[in-house]
Write a protein that binds this DNA or RNA. Structure first.
Lengths: 201, 201
DNA sequence: AAAAATATTAACTATTTGGTTAAATCATAT
DNA sequence: ATATGATTTAACCAAATAGTTAATATTTTT
């Protein structure tokens, strides 16, 4: 049970845990209340409905997670340095938050229309700068002329996928948790290798 | 509503549709019955419980989907040819079944212990042959000595991720369905490029 | 200290949901 | 034709679940 902190904060933390683990449909208000150590009526006192609580939690998770991902892109490094830096910090972030991507992807696919409005303003801006910088280096002949979207997608895919597919991969490769963690750690050098080898002239 | 075919087959098809779209927790027996055009009691007459129906559907989906993925690996092509062939047919398969991967990944993460037993025998075998062949080509100095698991993971990641992250990617890249389909189509050459460029000596 | 506002609880409600039952219908074999 | 077994239906049930209410306790304001 979550102790100390304000009731509202305890509800939010409990709700995050339960929603991330079970998803919206699998989450139970009673379980959230129990985890927060309060009465179920308190959830409605503070958040009115399961829907309202969920959107609060989703927005909170999403707006904490996406900027953390994108912020590396505003520094004054070269494209190559940025990619290396990004992949390393992104995988590190995922190591501490392994269940967030699948949660976001699943909820987004369950209810795309409604959730799109929740994410719209949080995703577009940060990539622009990086896109322009890449175009510059392409013009200079430093990197190959590849569709920007494909590069971003590949980087994210290679970072995120092992976390969303962990149970399947562990089963396929018969690996225990320890060796899987090593497998992930190794990707901090493998993924930049793969990407840079591909885009560099 | 699904017509013709035996009742059992109609239930299975309806259940597939609903479970894939909504997930186990979001699926309703009534919705499956309606879609199959039958009484709700029939679901229980044929499958006893939601759990039993779900496992039937899951096993069916999983055992149709995984072998289709792996079978390309038993031919007598070179590693390079196999990779090209695999990526192409895998992405094509995903274009016709775009929602299956997220369904499998979500259910596997919701209930890993129980579902692991359902998939165990269906995943391990087919990769072995490919792994040995790769080791051979590594020894011959044709391809770089890279952890086999990393190669497989990267290939699958690059194929699957755009499908599981589609709503997010479309939002980030502001792309309509048509341009997203083109984006996917382009990956049939981009992904082999990326992988082969990386592993070839 | 009294009043007012805020927070908390226990008990309750309405609805949804997976599952059951018993009767009716249909198909098949004798 | 008729008895037998399989299939289908409508009505029902019990448990679970989101949400409510009204009374009580606590904190804050005056």
């Amino acid at each position: 049970m979550i102790e100390d902190k304000s009731t509202e904060q305890r509800i939010i933390e409990a709700a995050k845990q339960v929603f991330i683990e079970k998803g919206y449909d699998g989450a139970r208000m009673q379980e959230i209340a129990d985890l927060a150590g309060i009465n179920k009526a308190m959830l409605h006192y503070y958040f009115r409905s399961k829907d309202k609580l969920f959107f609060t939690i989703f927005d909170d998770i999403f707006s904490r997670f996406m900027p953390a991902v994108q912020k590396g892109f505003t520094s004054n490094m070269s494209v190559e340095e940025k990619i290396k830096f990004f992949i390393n910090s992104y995988i590190t972030l995922l190591q501490s938050n392994p269940y967030i991507p699948l949660f976001i992807l699943h909820e987004l696919s369950r209810n795309p229309e409604e959730l799109k409005t929740h994410i719209h303003d949080k995703v577009t801006s940060n990539f622009k700068i990086f896109q322009e910088q890449m175009q510059l280096e392409i013009n200079q002949g430093l990197i190959k002329p590849i569709d920007f979207r494909q590069i971003v997608t590949n980087i994210i895919a290679l970072c995120v996928f092992p976390f969303v597919a962990r149970p399947l991969l562990q089963e396929v490769f018969s690996s225990d948790n320890e060796s899987f963690d090593k497998f992930i750690e190794a990707r901090k050098t493998i993924v930049p290798d793969l990407i840079l080898n591909w885009i560099k002239m």
